[in-house]
Structure formats: C-alpha cells, structure tokens
Design a protein around this nucleic acid. Structure first.
Lengths: 150, 150
DNA sequence: AACTAGACAGGAATGATTCCTACATAGCAT
DNA sequence: ATGCTATGTAGGAATCATTCCTGTCTAGTT
C-alpha cells in the first residue's frame, strides 16, 4: 500500500519513532511491498533513491520499527529474516518450492488457544500459524517435490 | 526418551538411513533431550562420548535425519536452528524471556485449515503453530517484559 | 573379500547480522 | 531561531552459524 509522507510521519510520531529520511524511505518501501522482503532486498530498493543509505541503517531501522510495533518479522525456517509491514493479526502460507510467503487473513485462525493444562504456567501473548506447501506455480514445475518438513 | 541401540538401528533401516556410530549417537542424544537443542549443543553433548566427532557431521546428519523424517527442525525467529526428535504432529510454546521451547500436544490444534479462498491455489501440506509469551520463571523475573513481536 | 556410493573429519569459505567508531541530525530546551 | 544532547547514520571490521571442499573411511552390497 502506497503511503503519503505525512501519513508515515504521523505513524512514526504516534509510535514515538524519530522521523528521518532514511526511516521514512525504508518504511515506505516495506509498506508498498507485500512480498515480505529481506533486509537486503529493502536495502537495494531504498538505495536507488538514497544512494548513501547504509545496510547497517536498514537493519537498525527495521529493529527500531519492529520494537515500535510498526513492522513485523516473518521467518521461514532459520533462513534470512523477512519483514512485513502488515502488523494486523494474520498468518502465512509458505511455499517450499520458491519461498514465496502469502498473507492469510482468516477470522477462524485468530481464535486459537492452548489448553491451560498444556500451557503449564506460560503467559501466552500471541501466536502465529505458518502453513507450508506448494504454490500454484511450484505445483506445476515440481509436482512431486514433497519433503518431510515438520 | 532413552532409546536402545537396536531401536535406533531399526528406525534408521525403516527410513533407509545408513546406520553409523555417529548418526546413532546424534539421534540418541536428540531423542533424550526434549529441550530442542541447537546443532552445536548436540555437537558438544555427543563429543563427550565421541571425541573425534566433527561439527560438520552433526550438521550433515541432522540434515539427513530431517530428510528421512526422523527429526524435525524448530525455529524461533531467524535464530539458530533447533532440533526436535519428536516428529509426531505437535506445536510449540516459545518463551520470549529465556528462549525455552515447550511442546504442545493438542488435538484441537491439529484440525486447522485455510479457507480455499485464502489458499489461492496453494497445496497445503501441513502447518505449525507457535505460541509465544513468557514462561512461569520469566514472568517472575521480568513481569513487564512485553515487546511487540508478531 | 572387494567395490562403490555415501559418510566422516578437518579446515576453509560464505554470508547474514552485529559491533564499533566517528560524524550528523531530530527534537527539545533555551 | 540557536544550541544541546540523545539518537541515528555511514562505513567498515568482526562474528558466528552454516555450508563447502577435499581427502579418507566405511556400510551395505556383490
């Protein structure tokens, strides 16, 4: 989703995040990109408009935005960290073929709970559900690609 | 769960995994350890009985066992890979304080599905649910530690 | 017992992420 | 508006889990 500069600034101030050109650029890039990009992908995207941008700033900023609750980290396996500008409650479909991550917004999935017997004193704050399988494209190219995954 | 050598061998053969001392030792160590250890933790554990064991062999073996479906990889964030000898369908509670991972066996959680509208052509093979929060111990030491996580 | 594909040890290489340092600037107080 | 100070930024070095490479070894088979 394309955001106006003033909207970005407003969100930053609402979440007590310092407003800088770099942060705005990084957040804007992430908000427009629903593919759950990696830090490095964001770096390369943002660098086109801000050639001085440092990779370090991207990591630092993503950390700050995450702590502020403006950005979410999505992970597939122990692979590279990927980021999501959508911080509403939702889950993900992950393709084992191409690594694609697709958002799943489903009311049913937002009502899960662990039985207190199973929770064993845990104070549960939230949860995430990751569905894995093969996307439409990958079913065609590798219809037999089924590996044990857990 | 402590496993007899012959039981390990039987499982390996059943899954067409070559039986070697190293693999048996690694698998045995993982089967006895429900803390979801990292590859390096397993390496250090196994090295006590097998001083020649190479770290590489641990990674290689865990990869082979995972492909064979005898071992499962559990991940918290993009952190170090952790492994689970429990390959029955189950989910996890993850403590944001100490990183502890606890198994959750709950029939209710084994019946989730994505609506076909949301799945968008995806062929779903399975899913995992990760609950996050603070364990009993960490609630006492850091009762206020609540960070945005998603 | 011999063969061969696959496994092992050890060390080098990779690469995402973090750390370090000097400089710049946002946001607040004057 | 001006200066102050905590925080952000650029750039490069360091870290460290994981993978790659190479030569040797061995499990499972002929």
């Amino acid at each position: 989703m394309k955001l106006r500069p003033w909207e970005i600034e407003a969100r930053f101030r609402r979440h007590a995040v310092r407003v800088t050109r770099q942060r705005a650029a990084i957040y804007a890039a992430l908000a427009e990109d629903t593919s759950h990009p990696t830090a490095d992908e964001l770096y390369r995207t943002v660098k086109r408009q801000h050639p001085m941008m440092s990779r370090n700033t991207v990591y630092y900023t993503l950390g700050a935005l995450r702590q502020a609750g403006l950005v979410q980290e999505v992970n597939v396996g122990h692979e590279v960290a990927r980021f999501d500008g959508n911080v509403t409650v939702h889950h993900h479909l992950i393709c084992r073929g191409c690594g694609r991550i697709v958002d799943v917004m489903d009311e049913e999935l937002n009502r899960l709970a662990v039985s207190s017997r199973q929770a064993g004193g845990f104070h549960v704050l939230g949860y995430r559900v990751e569905f894995y399988g093969y996307c439409a494209d990958c079913q065609q190219t590798r219809p037999d690609a089924v590996e044990h995954c857990g």
